[in-house]
Amino acid sequence: MRGAAATALSELEREIDAPGAGLDRLQLVPTPFVPEVRLHLAEDAIVWWARMEAAAGHALPPPYWASVWAGGQALARHLLDHPELAAGRRVLDLAAGSGLVAIAAALSGAARVVANDIDPYAVAAVTVNARANRVDVTVTGGDLLDTGDAEADLVVAGDVFYSRAMAARMLPFLQRAAANGAEVLVGDPGRGHLPGDRLTVLADYPVPTTEPSVDSSLRRVQVLRPA
């Protein structure tokens, strides 16, 4: 690991090793709805972000990896409940965030797991979270969405249809992966940009809400595949 991701990893490792607790600290905790997986999460990611930006003296990417998102929770639960989906297969976790889904795939017996995210802090977070769960996950940075081959037997993507622009880029990549023979699974909590006519629902989960600024204690989350 080099460059920005290596710097981010050093910072997260210092954060994890620092004594103390509170809203602005990272804690290794069981994941709601997926307690088999433990993640380094912030009790309040916004407070943690503010402290880290103040210490750095410049803007940092929003720490989406420091919270658990409903689409990822549902996908991870689905993989652990149906380990045959990942067992013995090459798995790619797109927009991996904390690495929850990638770790669930590894725990389900995947032959190889690659977690990809464009945020160097997410790359670092997946690294420390995979280490905490004693699984092997290869972590990559950079944008894969304009590439041709996913080089995976199973592609998983949680909460990736959060904006119209992202949906317009994500869906063609997933469709190409499916056309090339990969199984594709998407976790979505109804964010409003899901192309429902091009996806088939496989499962529906009531997922406990841990996201910031969400009023309901539960969200209905679908696991889908391209039609």
Rank of each mutant, 00 (worst) to 15 (best):
M166S: 09
M166P: 11
A167H: 03
A168T: 10
A168Q: 00
R169V: 00
R169H: 00
R169G: 03
M170L: 15
L171N: 01
L171S: 05
L171M: 03
P172I: 04
P172R: 03
F173D: 12
F173R: 15
F173N: 09
F173A: 08
L174M: 02
L174W: 03
Q175V: 05
Q175S: 08
Q175T: 04
Q175N: 07
Q175L: 12
R176C: 01
R176W: 03
R176F: 02
A177F: 01
A179R: 05
A179Y: 00
N180R: 14
N180L: 09
N180T: 03
G181R: 12
A182P: 06
A182Q: 09
E183H: 11
V184A: 01
V184H: 01
V186R: 14
G187N: 00
G187R: 02
D188A: 07
D188V: 06
D188S: 04
D188Y: 13
P189Q: 14
P189Y: 10
P189H: 06
G190Y: 07
G190Q: 08
G190N: 05
G190V: 04
G192Y: 01
H193E: 09
H193S: 02
L194Y: 13
P195M: 04
G196Y: 05
D197G: 06
D197Q: 09
D197P: 07
R198I: 00
R198K: 11
R198L: 06
L199K: 04
T200C: 11
V201N: 10
V201F: 05
L202G: 04
L202P: 07
L202E: 13
L202F: 02
A203Q: 02
A203L: 06
A203M: 07
D204R: 15
D204F: 15
Y205N: 14
Y205C: 13
Y205Q: 08
P206I: 13
P206H: 13
P206E: 15
V207R: 10
V207S: 08
V207L: 08
P208R: 12
T209V: 13
T209D: 13
E211M: 04
E211W: 04
E211H: 04
S213W: 13
S213I: 09
S213T: 09
V214Y: 14
D215C: 10
S216G: 14
S216P: 13
S216C: 11
S216D: 12
S216R: 15
L218D: 13
L218K: 12
L218P: 12
